[in-house]
């Protein structure tokens, strides 16, 4: 499992989605430096989320009998439904505010895609 690479890719994906949604609402050239600065907190958020919520599932479950593909097929649905429900709840609670909306949409898509990246590496097809 290449965790660093995954976190890096996830951070870029999250930043892209987050800023595309925000800039679709209001665009200003003066916001550009903040886009680059925001990569730091986004990286920290992604690292925490991935290390706390996704990696342990692979660390604890992966074995010779339990391939990544099997882990994905069994646990990804539970994870993604939980994550989706949590994000929708938070968005609903904050009355669809653009900043929160973009944060949770990017969080949901990034974590889901991160699962695909983790599961894809060195897959043993059974």
């Amino acid at each position: 499992m290449n965790i660093l690479s995954n976190i890096g890719k996830s951070s870029l994906l999250a930043a892209s989605i987050f800023w595309i949604i925000i800039l679709s609402d209001t665009f200003d050239w003066d916001m550009i430096p903040f886009i680059f600065l925001s990569l730091i907190p986004i990286y920290i958020c992604c690292a925490f989320t991935i290390l706390i919520t996704i990696c342990p599932i692979f660390w604890f479950l992966k074995s010779d009998d339990y391939s990544k593909r099997r882990i994905f097929k069994t646990y990804f649905p539970i994870y993604t439904i939980t994550m989706f429900s949590f994000c929708v709840y938070c968005i609903y609670k904050t009355s669809f505010e653009v900043f929160i909306l973009s944060f949770f949409i990017s969080a949901y898509i990034t974590t889901a895609q991160s699962w695909v990246w983790f599961s894809k590496e060195n897959v043993v097809i059974k």
């Binding site: 593909r69 994905f72 990804f76 649905p77 993604t80 439904i81 989706f84 889901a112 895609q113 699962w115 695909v116 599961s119 894809k120 897959v123 097809i125």
Partner: peptide, 18 residues
């Protein structure tokens, strides 16, 4: 629910692994 929120990613993962 799973299909509605992540069917595309699931199919993409299966397709990629194959």
């Amino acid at each position: 629910v799973y299909t509605s929120i992540a069917g595309f990613l699931h199919r993409r993962f299966l397709k990629q692994t194959i």
